[in-house]
Design a binder for these strands. Sequence first.
DNA 1: ATAATATATGCAGATTTTTGCATATAGAGC
DNA 2: GCTCTATATGCAAAAATCTGCATATATTAT
Lengths: 119, 119
Amino acid sequence: MRDELYESASQLFFLMGHPVRLRILDLLRRGEACVCHLQAALGLPQPYVSQQLRLLREAGLISSRREGLFIYYRLANQQVEELLGKVLGPVEETQPVPGCACPKCQRSFSADFLKEAVR
Amino acid sequence: MRDELYESASQLFFLMGHPVRLRILDLLRRGEACVCHLQAALGLPQPYVSQQLRLLREAGLISSRREGLFIYYRLANQQVEELLGKVLGPVEETQPVPGCACPKCQRSFSADFLKEAVR
DNA sequence: ATAATATATGCAGATTTTTGCATATAGAGC
DNA sequence: GCTCTATATGCAAAAATCTGCATATATTAT
């Protein structure tokens, strides 16, 4: 009974104990994101990102939602958010990522362009 | 700069993301313990326990103190205690471990024997 | 149906970690 | 000095993970 607790807890820590996966989780703290967004933000090949996402998804740390061609991932575990906060500090502000083609990023780029135009 | 944060944080999680190391840390939450104590509590060979202890020590999660022939280990990282609390819940009561020969365990056995005698 | 795009999956070589075991070290007591 | 006990270290085989790449799937648009 307590053995299972150790198993699940160490699996949780194991998944968070990888630089790339930890960064993915940290990015998702700021809100949902599509694969192309994570890919651009991390500067890593898409299949690689998808594989790490699969591990996190299968373990229930994140979940996904399809919208047309894009699949948006988000955190699905309260404990993960708390652990991230304890170790990485408060959530950092989202910064638009060049190189991501999803509607969300396009929108934030437009907003930026507007800001630039106002200056 | 933030990269280093990810590195150190994922190293911390990595070390905690192993069933045996996690159990060792959980045992040390209850107070310092010698190797023979951990060995008996986990039911694992002594060299194996010492190796995991070395990893935890080199990363600064635990520290040790020698007293004669015995070496007592204890948690040396506040963050680790908090993370353990969040995932494993409050500290469980220490239970004397048969098979451990250190003075501390002998003492707790004596206490138990007293309790038994009172019944 | 075909093409194009976003994402997922499968597989294999390279690298790490895990685990077990033999042996070394260090202190205590004789 | 020698012996005993507690702990540490070294090494290697086995197992797991990491990483990269080729390819498959699913959806949209033409």
